[in-house]
Nucleic acid binder design. Structure first.
Lengths: 301, 301
DNA sequence: CTGTTAGCGCCTTCAC
DNA sequence: GTGAAGGCGCTAACAG
């Protein structure tokens, strides 16, 4: 009998049929608010996925990566994915994908934000961390400024000042801006006059060009709070060592260049997301960050 | 009617049922011969996956990453994956997974090797590239040596000399060793006396420790052909600038440190694998590499 | 203990 | 035009 099956080229049990029967696929879905290649180009995204995949490997789950934002078939792509649960990365306020994943009735974990009633959220307290690092970098400064991630899906590079919350579509970015604003105000500055350079992508080149634009607008800038280490380094390259500077993520870049940064483990957050999505209980990550003080915010007075 | 469905919490079309009906899942499977986290830790693996994902995103395919080598349920994991085609990364001679994927009857593309009758193969000509770079680095040398990736699944670090093909389980490693050997013999050395340092992992620390072991065995080593740029840099850090040196992949490391290297695009190879797996025709990648000469193999005589 | 059957949810066909 | 039914491949339950 087995020989006959072999001879006829029986392709083995069909996974779709099996899933249908059992009602589970043993696969975790990761929904990206970005182009798929971004998942493998941004080092933070890679760390996050490494954490996710660690959990999947342990439990014998596959990992299905679903890109969104490319077209109007996002909902179909997400719903068509044969997965048991979703982890969302880089989603935004009012993202239609949020409704889509919720309507599936499957477990959903959102990384970073936004907080959605009934869906799990894993994130550090970006606002509080931003307040702490900005307080560090803006103390003893005369003309503070910010280097930011994109504010909305259009992902434009530009320079503005004191942006309002409602202009900012990405939760992590909004929270960090809010934290910078908290610090700015506590130190007695006028937020509406603080220049904010927005970088389309998270890389050195973009940061340098945006820093040039910032300095063109206000050459007296003497302190920069940046949302990533590459952005911070780009700012320094267009300035001089007297610039007070902070980055974010405590990567090799900030270590090598003595840049004050915010340490957080994307990998651990990935683990927490996957564990939660697959039915476990992860610890609270709100306070899982640390301010790492380095030479770039040393007081020189 | 729609309202009623909504009210009852209809979870939307079930992807498993849909796949079953249509006989396709619109998902590409990537089978890793490594622990899943490796896929996100090794920069070459990340580039390869970026290429794969680019194609998947274009065509509206999902990406399902299946780790193997963890236990004896590899076959089940692979067969249970709801995918339309497979791409294999870091597989080896006689890997049982090869039989498993073939038995599914789905399209299979193997990256790097081994060549299997009836399954597609995407790879540069590692042997020829290794011969070229070794000829470059070993010319004018007196005591050539090699820094290698693991030879087999046990992934041990150790020092040996002139290993035979049959000791080497990974196709890419075997081909490169063969190319080094070709060059060594053409230059008149005795392959069986050439020290080969095997590094368990592809990182600097491992390379430094293995280089120490190599030098302990033969302090007169004056040229190293390494299978990656990190391994090459590690070797240099335990030696001095007079060491003739070559790496592989033409990464930032080799550029910054003036190390001769072999350029190839893992990303393009990823694209080629995905295109082939999903039914397209990719161009031949055998000769898609280049020797990049730098200061580390300058003739100083 | 072996053999048959029902049904997972979907889509397409065919009947009305 | 609307509506019912069959079958994709699997497995659990049930009948012989």
């Amino acid at each position: 009998v087995l020989a006959a099956a072999e001879a006829l080229g029986y392709p083995g049990p069909d996974p779709s049929a099996r899933s249908l029967r059992y009602g589970e696929t043993r696969t975790l879905g990761v929904v990206l608010g970005e182009h798929l290649t971004y998942a493998f180009e941004d080092s933070q995204a890679v760390s996050f996925l490494a954490g996710i995949s660690e959990v999947c490997a342990d439990r014998g789950y596959g990992l299905n990566i679903v890109p969104t934002g490319a077209g109007d078939d996002d909902a179909r792509r997400v719903m068509d994915a044969a997965v048991d649960a979703y982890v969302l990365w880089t989603t935004f306020y009012d993202d239609p994908v949020l409704d889509t994943v919720r309507s599936t009735g499957k477990p959903v974990v959102i990384h970073g934000g936004p907080a959605v009633e009934g869906l799990a959220l894993i994130s550090i307290d970006n606002r509080e961390a931003a307040r702490a690092v900005a307080t560090e970098v803006f103390t003893n400064a005369k003309h503070p400024a910010v280097m930011s991630f994109p504010l909305d899906r259009r992902r434009m590079s530009f320079v503005t000042s004191g942006p309002d919350d409602h202009e900012i579509e990405y939760p992590v970015t909004r929270e960090r801006i809010a934290g910078y604003r908290d610090a700015v105000r506590e130190l007695g500055f006028d937020w509406s006059e603080v220049p904010v350079g927005v970088c389309r992508t998270n890389d050195l080149g973009e940061a340098r060009s945006t820093m040039q634009d910032l300095l063109a607008r206000d050459p007296s800038i003497d302190a920069i709070a940046a949302m990533s280490d590459p952005l911070a380094l780009g700012a320094r390259m267009e300035s001089n060592d007297s610039l007070r500077l902070s980055g974010w993520d405590d990567s090799d870049i900030s270590r090598q260049h003595g840049i004050t940064s915010v340490a957080q483990s994307m990998r651990e957050q990935g683990v927490a997301c996957a564990v939660t999505a697959l039915g476990g209980v992860a610890s609270n990550y709100r306070d899982n960050w640390q301010l790492v003080r380095r030479a770039s915010t040393q007081t020189t007075s």
